[in-house]
Design a protein around this nucleic acid. Structure first.
Length: 272
DNA sequence: TCCTTATGTACAA
DNA sequence: TGTACCTAAGGAC
């Protein structure tokens, strides 16, 4: 379930379970065996997230770079660790906990220079203190590309994925097909601040909820409901179902090989 | 049991 | 723009 909130939460969870304790590090699947052998017995010293990238620091400068991609999953539990299945790329274990990584796009030992290069190519992350929303707006305001595409471009803004993209555009009534250049500074400020708030809540709850209190099923007099992905949302994966606000049909379309969801009735803001 | 789908990204043409 | 990569869950039979 990897958007930026998931990765920041993992950075916290890895730290809480493993920081400063000697670790047994293995790669039952075999694709990370050499690095695991190099690191086993050492301590985890640092964890960090930037966008959807997770960094695990060992000793002075050893760093494991993890990207979950679309399918990657992490399971964390109390010791003793169960016998690993054949798909576990990386297992960390100490006397109290274990964590298994499966199916990541990336799991690699990298140098400080390589780590820096990753930071350098990523746009500001709403979950990081060092984020500068203005640098994202510089790119957006000069682009003829749609705002829906720009929000998914990790060079523009990092950590936002297909759920937050669809939901934040709905919350601000922004037509996803508007060009970046049509987004006003005030609109961007509101969208950015909203992403900061939503994604922080996502880290806390480990899921994505975007429905405002006045639009919850209870407030609207509808039966309770949790959407397919595990949180409560306005439009994501709700194609052909009624909009929570106007009752019209939520639409879906292909945009850059991803599914876009939006309400054509509610999302008509041209200038706000 | 098979097929589709998924909260992602990189690279080729 | 298309394709490759990685895994698992859910739905259609």
């Amino acid at each position: 379930m990897p958007e930026g909130h998931t990765i920041h939460r993992l950075a916290q969870d890895y730290a809480a379970a493993f920081l400063g304790t000697p670790l047994q590090i293995t790669s039952p699947q075999g694709k990370f065996t050499d690095a695991a052998a190099l690191l086993t017995g050492t301590e985890l010293t640092h964890t960090e997230a930037h966008g959807k990238h997770l960094f695990l620091g060992f000793r002075d400068s050893d760093c494991v770079h993890i990207h979950l991609g679309l399918f990657g999953k992490v399971t964390l539990g109390p010791a003793p660790a169960p016998p690993p299945t054949g798909t576990v790329r990386l297992r960390l274990a100490n006397s109290t906990s274990y964590v298994d990584l499966r199916g990541p796009t990336t799991c690699a030992l990298i140098t400080p220079a390589e780590k820096q290069a990753i930071h350098d190519r990523l746009g500001p992350d709403p979950l990081r203190e060092d984020a500068d929303p203005h640098s994202a707006y510089q790119k957006i305001s000069r682009s003829r590309t749609t705002i829906a595409s720009l929000l998914m471009d990790q060079k523009v803004i990092s950590g936002v994925g297909n759920v937050y993209r669809a939901e934040v555009l709905f919350r601000h009534r922004v037509d996803p097909y508007r060009a970046g250049s049509s987004i006003t500074p005030a609109e961007w400020d509101a969208i950015w601040q909203d992403l900061v708030d939503l994604m922080r809540e996502g880290v806390r709850n480990n899921r994505i909820d975007t429905v405002r209190p006045e639009h919850t099923p209870e407030a609207m007099g509808r039966p309770p409901r949790v959407d397919d992905h595990g949180g409560e949302v306005y439009v994501y994966r709700r194609a052909n179902r009624p909009c929570h606000i106007c009752g019209g049909e939520i639409r879906t379309a292909d945009l850059a090989a991803r599914n876009l969801f939006w309400c054509p009735t509610c999302q008509k803001n041209q200038i706000s």
